[in-house]
């Protein structure tokens, strides 16, 4: 279990810069997700930590030791790949034993450890199955066991769930989290799925075009996006264009509303961000004078919720409401929306 640190790491492929002077610190036993759109550099970051590629400049440290001259096989990192990458010629238990055999562990130790790990991932019954006899979810569990078998200092997961269907993905998510908590291993998890990142991590690093856009706990990332990109990428958000007038007053095409947390923001062009579930259709005490009137343009069913699209002064507001007594709301209905100032956030124009 070691701390992982990247200091001013830059990596170029030909003329494109994949990573530019990236600083990142993953604490001991922490579960950190790297999340971002494809091409944002998250997989490159992971491969830099694993040692498959070397930085053009900057340092990668594992356990406070510079790794630039250490090869992949001496870094003690366990890796789980998107397409499982199980050795097709070996059974499940042989796959799990591979790393220990490569490190010339004793046969007795290997057998005990393999049994232990297969039990941990709940696949003791499949020990003698070949990868092509296992389902995708089972293969990924074996791959996880194989990565953990070498007792790595760091566990790296590269989109491990994206090839699986939704149901398996959800159960495996819990399982990865459980195994990580039990073993206390430092874990870096790459995904393009922000929802998954928020669900599973201690901290989330949001990446965009080779840089870290924002880093924080899932709660911080969700409720306090610091940039327009974060606000857009994580979850569903209403972003209204306007001007900050100072004194917590935001002016847009539909008038003025009061907005909280504008500390440090200078008056000027900015965006107002408000989550759909924070908008109400009835006046509450917290909403104070913040109201917007508009016309309902659409209504979709989301299971426990109903999402409305309400048009107001050229902006479309998405509103998530609990699915109760909403029959009277239909397309074309005029309605007023209310939201509390403390649920809004102002984001600087970039």
């Amino acid at each position: 279990m070691s701390k992982v640190e990247l200091r001013g790491v830059t990596k170029k492929f030909g003329r494109t810069t994949a990573i530019s002077s990236l600083d990142l610190c993953v604490e001991k036993s922490e579960f950190l997700s790297l999340v971002g759109p494809s091409g944002c550099g998250k997989t490159t970051t992971l491969r830099l930590i694993a040692g498959f590629i070397r930085p053009d400049s900057g340092k990668v440290l594992i356990g406070n030791k510079d790794m630039n001259r250490v090869s992949v096989k001496n870094r003690d990192v366990g890796i789980v790949f998107q397409n499982y990458a199980l050795f097709p010629n070996m059974t499940a238990s042989e796959n799990v034993a591979f790393g220990m055999k490569a490190r010339k562990a004793e046969q007795g130790t290997i057998t005990t450890r393999v049994t232990e790990l297969l039990e941990m991932v709940g696949l003791s019954a499949k020990a003698t199955s070949f990868p092509n006899e296992l389902s995708g979810g089972q293969q990924q569990r074996i791959a996880l066991a194989r990565a953990l078998a070498i007792e790595p200092r760091v566990l790296l997961l590269d989109e491990p769930l994206s090839a699986l269907d939704a149901k398996v993905r959800n159960t495996l998510r819990f399982e990865i989290k459980r195994i990580q908590q039990e073993s206390g291993i430092t874990t870096i998890y790459v995904t393009h799925d922000q929802e998954e990142a928020l669900a599973i991590s201690d901290r989330v690093a949001l990446m965009n075009s080779g840089r870290i856009e924002q880093i924080g706990t899932p709660g911080q990332i969700y409720s306090r996006p610091s940039t327009l990109f974060s606000a857009n990428f994580v979850g569903v958000n209403n972003l209204i264009k306007g001007d900050y007038k100072g004194n917590e007053i935001f002016r847009w095409a539909g008038g003025t509303v009061s907005a909280a947390c504008s500390c440090g923001l200078k008056p000027g062009r900015c965006w107002l961000s408000i989550r759909p579930e924070k908008i109400k259709i009835e006046k509450t005490e917290e909403s104070q004078s913040n109201s917007v009137s508009g016309v309902c343009r659409g209504k979709i069913f989301l299971g426990p919720l109903v999402r409305l699209a309400v048009e107001s002064y050229g902006e479309m507001f998405l509103v998530d409401l609990l699915n109760e007594n909403l029959q009277e709301i239909s397309t074309g209905k005029r309605m007023d929306l209310y939201f509390a100032p403390e649920n809004t956030l102002l984001i600087r124009e970039e």
Partner: peptide, 12 residues
């Protein structure tokens, strides 16, 4: 990826 996996597991 098989090669990546094997290298990360410490194979010479």
């Amino acid at each position: 990826t098989l090669e990546d996996a094997a290298l990360s597991l410490g194979a010479s």
